[in-house]
Design a protein around this nucleic acid. Sequence first.
RNA 1: GCCGGGAUGGCGGAAUUGGUAGACGCAAUGGACUCAAAAUCCAUCGAUCGCAAGGUCAUGAGAGUUCGAUUCUCUCUCCCGGCACCA
Length: 762
Amino acid sequence: MAEKYDHKSIEKKWQERWEESGAFGADDSSIKPKQYLLVEFPFPSGDGLHTGHVRSYTAMDIVARKRRAQGQNVLYPIGWDAFGLPTENYALKTGKHPKAVTEENTNNFRRQLKSLGLSFDWSREVNTTDPKYYKWTQWIFLQLFKKGLAYKTKTLINWCPRDKIGLANEEVVDGACERCGTLVEKREKEQWMLAITKYAQRLYDDLETVDYIEAAKAGQRNWIGPSEGAEITFKISRSNLDVKVFTTRPDTLFGATYMVLAPEHPLIAQLSIENKAEVESYVQAAKKKSDIERGALDKEKTGVELQGVKAINPANKEEIPLYVADYVLGGYGTGAIMAVPAHDERDREFAEKYNLPIREIELEDPKEITKKVVGTWVTNFKLRDWVFSRQRYWGEPIPMINCAKCGWVPVPEDQLPVELPQIEKYQPTDTGESPLATIAEWVNTTCPQCKGPAKRETDVMPNWAGSSWYYLRYADPRNDTAFAAQDKLKYWTPVDWYNGGMEHTTLHLLYSRFWHKFLFDIGMVPTSEPYLKRTSHGLILAEGGEKMSKSKGNTVSPDELVERFGADTLRLYEMFIGPFDQPVVWSTQSMTGSQRFLERVWKLEPTDAPLSPKLETLLNQTIKKVGEDIENLKMNTAVSALMILLNEMEAGVSRDAYKIFLQLLAPFAPHMANELAEQAELDPIDWGTWPSFDASKLAGATSTVVVQVNGKVRGKIELAVGTPEGEALAAARITAGKWLELGEKKAVYIPGKIVNFVVRGA
RNA sequence: GCCGGGAUGGCGGAAUUGGUAGACGCAAUGGACUCAAAAUCCAUCGAUCGCAAGGUCAUGAGAGUUCGAUUCUCUCUCCCGGCACCA
């Protein structure tokens, strides 16, 4: 074993062996306890795998390997979230077809993942762009439609002029397209929407029932944004019209001195306003503004009074003026507010500008006054319905047919999938129509109901569709008659542990909870939540502390690192780099430490020497620590514990202790650990052999007790475990010596840890 | 503004029912080996005073609780992330 560790040949050998034996296949009918571990399946971009994938996938791989060693039936699957704009844009640029690009990229990703020795069950690989897969994405959409949760409506949407695509609210960051950074415009368009707001309350409440990292829960709560208040109706004087407002402060009703309607408010068109032209031009200007213009905080408030119209405050029957102003949002609450300048900063600012009265008042009881003015107590959410149409090519066709007579008619389920047609030109259009609209022979079809001529929907689904249910498909990935068989879903779901990025908190994670709850409601899945536990890995930053990005040229390629250092070293380094949930800065130089560690492991040779008491204690402590740290994703300290153990073992190690060391190492560095176990003629270590510790051997026979005087360390003594207080204090007094000269007032003894003397004059 | 997470040596970071601050690793310095270099091995490695023994200071800042605080409480500063004219 003297030769240098050759990571290339050894890693290849074990990867082939795992592949040939189907080593990590999950068993659908095992008597072992099941364990479903999930990582976010990657979008197979042309850039290949990045270090962040390695961090997440390795951590869960370690959990998976440990759990298998503990005798659990582990499902650790992988697949491809392959629809989406980047592929389409790349295809446009290179002239290749998106399908060909996807295949190239998935082949590359698969090769890269395999080179890392990740213990995925490759037999369950799924691909969202496979018609056999998206058949069921379309099927779920149809169920949503049938339950009234998918609807098409004309609405102002966020439009990215560069990508030429509509965006969901969740995809707009700081008023710009989250993908390309272009400032988003408002456009009025017919869009398919999913009524996620119908699930807002449950999505919010059920966070109580799941074990998610706090930041993810907080992020979702924030995004769903419930607030309780009253809906109160104000009559319009001298008319039979009225307007409903939402307020969280009905107690301030007597302080309402004017009302504001959002520019989008439908009432504006119905009122007989004296300055109609002025109002109309304000409304038009406001509608054109982007969110970022409208939402700028330092922006001065603007508005126009609706002249000749008054509203009646139901509490005191006072007539108050009405304004239209864009600081009131059309999409929230009722799109209208009662303005209480004395109690609301925004209203005050507006009132000061337009010389409206600011009235200080005594506050009412919120619920009583609501009852008195015949209002209703409601909860409003910030969450909006999900814009589900995309005017591009590379996505799942929305399986709907528009008939002049029958309206929107779903494609019959037995005709699914509606396959994406092969076309030559899939450039997006400025008109906002999908490229699919140009293919007459595909668009023109017959109505499934009346058999008359009809047209297919030409928009496709957003890239979040396929990922909203993929974890269910893994339970039964080749099923042709259902998205997954019920018995398999019952066995495998819910996902026990899901690790993924924080950036998906309000996108994928929320969307998939919504779909899952819907599927639960129609009896298609056995639980109301998809994921029991959610953890998140911190970002890996480039060496300078900046975000890694291809344009900055500061990325590191896992391929090169595997080539140069080996997969085990890369895995170990990424686990050692820092706390798993925190952002960390990459340092290729620091990989040296992990490399040296593995080289020393390689050289370690067991002997027949008996286990020293010191090593026995350390060994038991390390078994405990590594096991616990893996469960808590404290991978950095687990690795350091292995390093400490190795340091000690280099002085001599028995075969039994050596084997335990390899077992503990195996999840982190599976290739080397398995190779060494084989060379030492030990049993294969991957299955059913996780070591256990002896609780009685976690502490040695003696312990170091620190002697303090007034809290300052003045010496240390070695005491036998269980030394009585009197004896311990006597020994400590000798060590403390002159520091006690001022006169001892008190002594504190914590067995095994510390003696502290309190003396005068401190 | 609201919410979440942070701040510890030259660097990444350890340390929880409050009990030796700096584990483990990187870098650095000195030495061994070598013709030499790389690799490897040994030693040193928070600041400061001291020949030394040893002392003092030190976990973003300031207070507090305690025999004892990186850890608990209060106030504050800064950094990262999310949300934000949401009535």
